[in-house]
Design a binder for these strands. Structure first.
Lengths: 137, 137
DNA sequence: ATATATATGAAAACCTTTCTCATTTACACC
DNA sequence: GGTGTAAATGAGAAAGGTTTTCATATATAT
């Protein structure tokens, strides 16, 4: 199934690409850094280079298969793209990431861009805080 | 005037600190990276180390004299703090940065954090786009 | 089966930022 | 005004995440 997605994106179907996809599809952690993916593959007994993981994830991003979150402090995490636009809440204690969708904010952003004469291409919104779990511990 | 601000923040009044403040107060570019500040000082004929610029800016941030924006892709820019909370619009062509304030968004963010059980500590919102000037060129 | 363009792995390079440590400086006190 | 001491500085090394290089290996078109 995924081979098709790769071909559609103009990418050859290679073992490293299939393996990275497999990790992203089967992990419990929807948000993973390149290093996380790399380690997960090593643990599965796969031989892969970290540079390849970075390359593959970047290509997947270009192909729209994953999106990249640039977490504050210069390290990126990736999530499988599911077509739904959403923003993120991050717990500053345990690094948990939750997602949310808010039409009011989306609309205001477009309005602000228009007011300022910007042709909006993208936006990023992160809410930082302490999650419920971390508050009670 | 500024010496007072430094003393209030528990920082000794040193030449590097005064010079960095001076740059931030007199530049045409409200948003500057550590490197920008460093280069501006070198051009003024000041001798200063890049590490010192980083240290000073970080201390200023702690003292509430400047705020740090973490632009997408792990490199920071600083702006003189003026007490007003605002978010940013960034031109992806010319890197111009504009500011905006929107109470509707602020309110929705707080509501979302509450809904999700997060005790909100901070947030970051960037709208990316093509500015008016770059659209017509 | 083969040619060729593309992908891979390992290590080196990169870039921004922080740290180390020997030297210098600001400020409190005499 | 000197002087002691804690804090600040500069230069370079180190860190951390990511990208590049380049020789080798592999997928796909023919």
């Amino acid at each position: 199934m995924e081979s098709q997605d790769l071909r559609k994106a103009g990418l050859k179907v290679t073992l490293p690409r299939l393996k990275v996809l497999e990790i992203l599809e089967t992990t419990d952690h929807r948000h993973m850094s390149a290093e996380d993916v790399y380690k997960a593959l090593l643990e599965m007994g796969e031989e892969i280079g970290l540079a390849t993981v970075y390359r593959v994830l970047t290509q997947f991003e270009g192909a729209g298969l994953v999106s990249r979150l640039s977490i504050d402090g210069g390290h990126a995490v990736f999530e499988l793209e599911d077509g739904s636009h959403h923003d993120h809440l991050l717990c500053v204690r345990c690094n948990r990431i939750e997602e949310f969708v808010d039409d009011v904010i989306e609309k205001r952003q477009r309005a602000i861009a228009a007011e300022k004469g910007f042709e909006m291409t993208d936006h990023s919104l992160y809410i930082y805080g302490i999650c419920r779990h971390c508050q009670s511990s």
